[in-house]
Amino acid sequence: MRPNALGTTLAGLVTVVGLTVGSVATAGTSFAATATTAQTTAVAQPAAVTATENFGLTTAEAKNVQDFLAYHWGYTGAIDGQLGTNSWKAFQRCLATYWGYTGAIDGDPGPNTIKALQRLLKDSYGYTGAIDGIAGSGTRAAFKRFAA
């Protein structure tokens, strides 16, 4: 080999080795989670109830409910017409006190919350359906009367 060719070859070899070492050194910092790791992480996170459930109420009607909850049941959130977790926690306190709700005060308006709500609505707001935990049209109509 000629001296220039040898120098060029050595320079190229040093460059390749340098790039390889640099790639290996940064491999740890550019780690991407595998699908299994991402799934495990997602499962490990606690689920939070954050959805709004107005059961057919308008924003104005839901604000009326929030006013009632603030006045009587310790609701301290915004009067924004969105019955979210904190609104339903306050409502569950009401339902637990008077209407047979025995579930967790978790802000999730699931079937047990709806059954207690149906008992309240049957007592004073014209609900005539079954206490079935399903917020059907009869439950929604009576809930509108409650919110008026």
Rank of each mutant, 00 (worst) to 15 (best):
21 V>S: 02
117 L>Q: 02
25 A>H: 07
37 T>A: 15
134 I>T: 13
128 T>N: 12
77 G>Y: 06
137 S>N: 12
142 A>L: 04
7 G>K: 15
47 A>F: 13
111 P>H: 02
102 T>W: 01
23 S>L: 09
116 A>L: 12
44 A>W: 07
80 D>L: 04
96 A>K: 15
67 D>T: 15
75 Y>Q: 05
126 G>F: 02
53 E>D: 14
142 A>F: 03
107 G>Y: 02
71 Y>I: 10
90 A>D: 03
78 A>D: 13
73 W>R: 14
76 T>V: 12
33 A>P: 07
83 L>D: 06
43 V>T: 15
62 A>E: 07
68 F>I: 10
35 A>L: 15
23 S>R: 10
54 N>W: 00
129 G>N: 07
145 R>I: 09
72 H>N: 13
66 Q>L: 05
85 T>W: 00
2 R>G: 08
82 Q>T: 10
79 I>G: 01
127 Y>C: 10
138 G>M: 07
139 T>W: 03
28 G>R: 14
33 A>I: 01
134 I>S: 10
95 L>C: 05
6 L>G: 00
130 A>P: 05
70 A>H: 10
9 T>Y: 06
23 S>Y: 11
3 P>C: 01
121 L>E: 10
11 A>S: 14
27 A>K: 07
66 Q>H: 05
101 Y>N: 10
17 V>A: 13
9 T>V: 11
8 T>C: 06
82 Q>W: 04
144 K>G: 09
21 V>F: 06
63 K>T: 05
148 A>P: 00
46 P>S: 09
41 T>G: 03
123 D>T: 08
111 P>D: 07
41 T>V: 13
99 W>N: 05
85 T>Q: 14
56 G>L: 06
17 V>D: 00
26 T>A: 08
20 T>V: 14
34 T>I: 01
122 K>P: 00
81 G>P: 08
32 A>W: 04
81 G>N: 12
122 K>Q: 15
54 N>R: 11
15 T>H: 06
11 A>H: 01
50 T>Y: 09
25 A>S: 11
145 R>M: 02
123 D>A: 13
16 V>L: 13
124 S>L: 04
5 A>D: 11
19 L>V: 12
107 G>H: 03
112 N>C: 00
114 I>T: 15
144 K>S: 14
34 T>E: 02
18 G>P: 04
14 V>P: 00
87 S>F: 04
7 G>H: 07
129 G>V: 11
28 G>L: 04
97 T>W: 08
94 C>Y: 12
